[in-house]
Amino acid sequence: MTDDRETDQVKDLLQRTAPARPDLAPAERVAAVTHRARVVRRRQGLAAAAVLAVVAGGVGWAVLGGSDDGPAPVAQDPPAPAAPVACPDPAPVYTEVPTEAEFPVGATSLRLCPGRSDAGAPTATTQQFRLPTEPLTDGVDALLDEVAAQPAYTGSDPECAFTTLALEPWILVAGYPDGSTVSVGSGSQACSSVTVDGTPVDVGATLALVGQAVTG
């Protein structure tokens, strides 16, 4: 067996392994790339605007502090960081959780939480919930960027046609410094989508993405 023959065999196996064509046509891919670039640019723009607003506020404060109208204001400690967002209690019925959400820039915590299958069912507990429920407090905006920048869900996975989906309600809750929250959720953990910042994204991929960030 020569090196060349081995190389040829490996090349042949790799050629046979890679599917002949992707699911997306090139034009659809260009559109998806355009969309993702715009999502990233928009969120980066919002983040930059938020920084500018903070800087401008600081400048205004400094100008006021330097006036002759009275004593210079005493610098105050920055506000204490908000506590990580908590899971709603009781867990909401999944049909009442929005499947679309716009997450503003500035989220300081994120958490996966259980939902309920219906109003009469007992509240799901974190023990029964298989996804990690620990809060994420670092890189929340970056993670939400990644979630929103996933490929648009097409529902074309043929495996889903042969899958009986269990009802496994979940909610993704983002917390903000002012105590407000933004949520999105679904009754299933696969073969469906939720819409994040205008993009319908696969729930399985989204939960994997968030779950890995939380446990990583």
Binding site: P19, L24, V33, R36
Partner: peptide, 16 residues
Amino acid sequence: RHKAEDLLQVALVKTW
């Protein structure tokens, strides 16, 4: 397939 599309699109966004 899904991860491949995701990976390619991220690479293409960087390239664009």
